[in-house]
Computed example of a mutant assay.
Amino acid sequence: MATWDDVARLALALPEATEGPTHGGNRSWRVRDKQFAWQRPLRPRDLAELGDAAPAGPVLGAYVPDVGARTALIADSPAIYFTTAHFAGPPSVLVRLAEIDAAELAELLDEAWACRAPRRLVAERRGAG
Rank of each mutant, 00 (worst) to 15 (best):
A8C: 01
L12A: 03
P15G: 00
E16N: 00
A17E: 01
A17T: 08
A17N: 02
T18L: 04
E19T: 02
P21D: 08
T22S: 13
H23L: 13
G24P: 00
G25N: 05
N26G: 06
R27I: 02
R27Y: 02
V31M: 03
D33E: 13
F36Q: 02
F36P: 02
F36I: 03
W38A: 04
R40V: 02
R43F: 04
R43I: 06
P44Q: 03
L47W: 05
L47C: 05
E49R: 07
D52Q: 06
A54H: 06
P55R: 11
D66E: 13
V67K: 12
A69V: 15
A69S: 14
L73M: 11
D76L: 03
S77N: 08
T83L: 10
T83E: 13
T84N: 10
H86R: 11
P91S: 12
S92K: 14
L94Y: 13
E99C: 11
A103K: 08
A106V: 05
A106Y: 07
E107F: 00
D110C: 14
A112H: 11
C115P: 08
R116D: 14
A117Q: 10
V122G: 12
V122N: 12
R125C: 12
R125P: 09
R126T: 15
R126Q: 15
A128K: 15
A128W: 14
